[in-house]
């Protein structure tokens, strides 16, 4: 019968999760999630109830979070803010095509080892002694993954842009995320004292393996609603006049709806707000927009296109509807 609910797997959950559940009432659960939301806000990240829920679940279930979304929407910022909010060290592994274990996990410092051998050559030590000396932690270059495992306190591990790595590296990562231990043939096994909080970001340029997805909680970040974006700008650029901020948000939101080569991200609208602040603009008019359009648009074609279609109205700048294409 248990098969019906496929829940033989339930057996393997950490008991602490269930214990925590029984102590907390329903109301406290909501409070906890709201608390995370407020803490994240203090750390400089505006998140809604859903994001906070995922963060809370990840913390309670001790599972990695897989964050997807368009570029510049704040995927990395989630992990950074979380580490600030919790006061934990952030260890970042930036992935790229062709990244391999020596870059991600650990590597022996060959040069230092060679130097050591040459330096002690005159006293002709025993071979075993040399081996013991050069394969010690002093000659080990710990890369981000090993650092996250050997960190004295709980760490936040951010694996950025995992969609760039090869399949075999992903498999290695999978093993690591399951066990949080790594064996160095020369030194022995390291096991994480406390399982780090893991955030994995992906731009979805390729499909990740099912096995990896299965192990993660999924969080999709989209471009924020206007009110959320206004709050983000208020948080990041507090000195900008509210009226200008409103106009920035309204225009950026409209521009995102167009089919551009690269739609402006949140990071870019923040940059734009900063630029306007430093230029000490009291108002966002057509001329200011033309001068600063390159902050939010990164392709000449996009800039040309927007320049033609932005108009100035009573409400501030707006986009004129484009002529419809094609034959009808």
């Amino acid at each position: 019968m248990p098969e019906k609910y496929n829940n033989t797997r339930l057996l393997s959950y950490p008991l602490s999760v269930h214990r925590e559940f029984s102590k907390t009432g329903v109301v406290e659960l909501t409070e906890k999630i709201k608390q995370i939301r407020d803490e994240m806000l203090e750390a400089g990240f505006v998140c809604d109830y859903r994001i906070a829920t995922v963060l809370y679940l990840a913390e309670a279930m001790q599972k990695p979070v897989l964050i997807e979304g368009p570029a510049g929407v704040g995927k990395t910022a989630v992990a950074q803010a979380f580490s600030r909010a919790r006061g934990l060290e952030l260890i970042r592994l930036q992935c790229y095509e062709g990244i391999d274990e020596p870059r991600a996990l650990y590597e022996w410092n060959y040069k230092k080892q060679l130097l050591h051998i040459q330096a002690c050559a005159y006293r002709q030590p025993e071979l075993r002694e040399i081996e013991r000396e050069i394969f010690s932690e002093e000659y080990l270059l710990a890369r981000p993954l090993l650092r996250a495992i050997t960190a004295p306190a709980r760490a936040v591990l951010l694996i950025d842009e995992i969609d760039k790595v090869d399949f075999d590296f992903e498999a290695m990562l999978l093993e690591l995320l399951a066990e949080f231990q790594v064996t160095l043939p020369e030194l022995g096994t390291f096991k994480a004292r406390e399982i780090p909080h893991v955030f994995i970001t992906s731009n979805a340029t390729r499909e990740l393996s099912e096995a990896l997805k299965r192990r993660c909680l999924y969080l999709h970040l989209a471009f924020p609603a206007p009110d959320v974006e206004a709050r983000i700008l208020a948080l990041q650029v507090p000195d900008l006049a509210a009226a200008v901020r409103e106009k920035v948000v309204r225009l950026v939101q409209q521009i995102r709806k167009l089919d551009l080569k690269k739609p402006p991200s949140i990071a870019e609208s923040i940059d734009w707000a900063r630029a306007l602040f430093w230029l000490a603009r009291e108002d966002l008019d057509l001329e200011t927009f033309r001068e600063t359009a390159s902050v939010i648009l990164k392709y000449q074609e996009d800039i040309e296109r927007i320049r033609q279609s932005v108009g100035s109205g009573e409400e501030g700048l707006y986009l004129k509807p484009e002529p419809k294409q094609g034959w009808r």
Binding site: N6, N7, V17, L29, I33, V54, Y56, L217
Partner: peptide, 28 residues
């Protein structure tokens, strides 16, 4: 089956009376 198990586990951790929480537990 794993994911279904995680889903039950997540449901224990959120407050279902808030629909956002319930939905997110399932979605995530």
């Amino acid at each position: 089956p794993d994911e279904l198990g995680y889903c039950y586990q997540a449901l224990l951790l959120v407050d279902w009376t808030v629909e956002d929480g319930f939905y997110t537990a399932l979605f995530a």
